[in-house]
Design a protein around this nucleic acid. Sequence first.
DNA 1: CGACCTTGTCATAGG
DNA 2: GGCCTATGACAAGGT
Length: 607
Amino acid sequence: MEVMHSSQQDMNLIDILWKQDIDLGARREVFDYNHRQKEHELQRQLELQEEKRLHLLREQEKALLAQLQLDEETGEYIPRPPASAPLQSAVTPLEVTQNVTFTEENGDAMSFDECLQLLAETFPVEETENTAVCLDTTAVSAPMMSPEQPALLSATLSPDPLSPPSPQRMSPDLEQAWMELLSLPELQQCLNMQMEDTLETTTYPLPNNPEVQNPNYSFYPMTNLTEGETNNVNVCPAEFMNTFNSSVPSMAPPDNLSQMKAKALQLNTDFTAESFPDIFYPNTILEESSGQHGLEGHESDTMSDIPIKPPFTPADNYCLSPGDAFDRGKHSLTAELPDSDSGISSNTSPHCSSPGKSVYGDGSFLYSDSDMEEMDHNPGSAESDYSEMFSINFQPDDLQSAISVSAVTGPQQQQEKKPKLHKTDPVEESGHNNAPFTKDKKRRSDVRLSRDEQRAKALKIPFTVDMIINLPVDDFNELMSKHRLNEAQLALVRDIRRRGKNKVAAQNCRKRKMENIVGLEGELDSLKEEKERLLSERSQNTNNLKEMKRQLNSLYLEVFSTLRDEKGNTYSPSEYSLQQSTNGSIFLVPRVKKTLIKSKDNQMSPA
DNA sequence: CGACCTTGTCATAGG
DNA sequence: GGCCTATGACAAGGT
């Protein structure tokens, strides 16, 4: 015993040194083999001592368990009936832990057996025997134990039917492996710390624990004890999983622990610096989107206050509608391409209180297109508004546009919007300003808001131009009734709708006109073809008529040649002609003397 | 630089 | 009378 005592002291000293090395990142494998052999022998001795102690401990537990009976279905121990069955050696203290009335000493035993159970589940006993002694605590606890810890700890926290290992799986080999493992002082210390943390966890009132809603909370006690490798496996992915994936319910049922753990491992595998923004990006978008939607209702009710609400620009208002995203995209483009058209900077105008702005900011002023034209001409009026808009909340708008541009904008709308990209700069969109548009015409065709879009922004119309134009009349009226717009805004909205409708009507009209032209051209071709056909037919008919006349003439002569007078002489066609009476009789009529015709009527005989 | 084309807008007629 | 559509006319801008 004295030898063992001195060995224990040596062990403690060595352990202290090891801990220092471990703290410095060194692993036990770095030590030479002889040292490890000596260490191994010492540990063997210590194990024997510890085994004896544990044997006594287990005898005490058995004495307690003798009064209990294992419920096969629930895995819980219930008070044994008077005729109690003999206590099985395979019964492990793990189940004992489920009875919360046990002492803290039992709790220690519980933790050890849990770990043993864990080892039995994670890898074969032979491996344990070969490696457990030489492995340091980090190597043992982190890679091998942590994957099973969720189930283990969940079993500790709550009676989960899936998690508790079967007590029959406990074998003497496992016990031996456990004893060897137990001989490691670091492991003992870690397990003790773990047990303390676990007990603390179980005793925490749940509402006061900020982690309570995290279904992976059971990971934390052990992960906090282990090295960073373990944290990578359990902690980080679990956090990220709850952080980025909004679809994962924050209150997942315990049954999903294994599944979530799998996700966590996968996440940990896939988690890189590149993937990090991807993981968080959707969430960011969601937050922004939700936040902006949250603003909508507020702004829609307080539109009259918008001019004095700098943080929320009309760009925010435009998130109301599907077409909004497109507008945002144009905002971004505008911001990227500050138009230096006409040499007037689009962002440098100090005329924030210019007539244009005062006009459109003042709800009592009745809007008119001519006013808008003035505004358009004035680079300091609406232009300054735009620069203000674009300077605030630009990035979210851009993000939003990237998300929803294609989803919410119909093909037809996109087609209609495409030309609108050409106009963004109010200087340009004035159109009547001779000086500006003499240069940089090319850029003007790039990214511009349409005039009406700019006007709508200037007056802070809470809808998109597309909405104003394309909504059905009923929906449009309903929309207008929902928002309290001043006179200028109402006038502008009506004009925008009128112009937009008329623009579409003009397009349709031109399209129709072109179609008519094409149709008329086709009709003209067909008519020409028919004319040719008719001309040809007429020519053919003329020829036929000539032929018929010729035949008739020959027939006529033939008939004349058959006629004879009383003397048997033929009648001359130049002196006589054949005529048909109404009753169908044919008479030979002299061409010269009509009186003779009548006088000879009775003398003539039918031909 | 002018001719031509496209497009937006306005005015107006008609439903 | 107001609204909508169709269409001619005009202007701006592009080719």
